[in-house]
């Protein structure tokens, strides 16, 4: 079976700067892969390239069978990206935001409602404008959008950031559940202890290139959530 993510000597330029300078990466279906590395190493650019948001200027790159060099836009409906920003409208409520982005992705409102319930956003928070949320609540809302859209590849950039203990446990369980449902997860994190618990393996990103780090502790079937 072809890997879900396959990069060979992939180069991505931000202006003239090679943010990725020859990345080799394979991620197989059903894997949870951790990208680790120092700030500015290229983790975010790699995730954005996988989402078809950054052009691959040289080398080979495919995600879910889509050639990113030829047609990066074709992969976008198939993946879900949670970056540093949440992509939510401040003046809309949590429910309105999640429903808008869910419908935009072609999923049903039932998916949106289920995702809100899973993230604990179906109570009084549902009608609160996003502008009034804490950073952690915004993060939960963005995760609900991702969950509702049910992407085949989850791309998460620091998914534990701004979340409390329960929220971090929930993120871990969402990743495991996504994989159990047939998706694949590629995520970047600086919280190595926690991230290595949930990841099947990790890949070091240093200076725009990748170095495999081998297997790490894996949590297979389930992560307990309070």
């Amino acid at each position: 079976m072809d890997p879900v993510v396959r990069f060979r000597a992939a180069v991505c330029l931000l202006g003239r700067f090679p943010a990725l300078a020859g990345v080799d990466l394979d991620v197989n279906a059903g894997e949870i892969v951790l990208l680790q590395g120092p700030n500015g190493a290229g983790k975010t650019t790699l995730l954005r390239a996988c989402a078809g948001l950054v052009k691959v200027a040289q080398g080979e790159a495919s995600v879910l069978g889509v050639n990113l060099v030829d047609d990066p836009k074709a992969v976008r409906p198939l993946v879900g990206l949670l970056g540093h920003a949440t992509g939510l409208y401040d003046d809309l409520s949590v429910s309105e935001n999640i429903r808008f982005w869910t419908r935009a992705g072609g999923a049903s409102l039932t998916d949106a409602d289920n995702a809100m319930a899973r993230l604990g956003l179906d109570g009084r928070l549902a009608s609160v404008p996003v502008a009034r949320l804490s950073a952690g609540q915004r993060r939960r809302s963005a995760l609900a959008v991702l969950l509702a859209r049910r992407p085949r590849l989850w791309l998460l950039d620091e998914p534990h950031a701004a979340l409390d203990q329960a929220g971090r446990d929930l993120v871990d369980s969402l990743m495991v559940d996504a994989v159990n449902a047939g998706a694949t997860v590629l995520f970047a994190s600086h919280e190595l202890d926690r991230a290595q618990e949930v990841a099947d393996r990790s890949v070091h990103v240093v200076g725009g290139t990748t170095q495999p780090s081998g297997n790490v502790g894996h949590t297979s079937e389930a992560v307990e959530v309070d």
């Binding site: 976008r76 993946v79 970056g83 920003a85 992509g87 401040d90 935009a104 992705g105 072609g106």
Partner: peptide
């Protein structure tokens, strides 16, 4: 143009 919404629009499938 705030909080990554342009990226979200690009990736939204709209």
């Amino acid at each position: 143009t705030v909080d990554g919404i342009i990226d979200a629009l690009r990736i939204s499938g709209l």
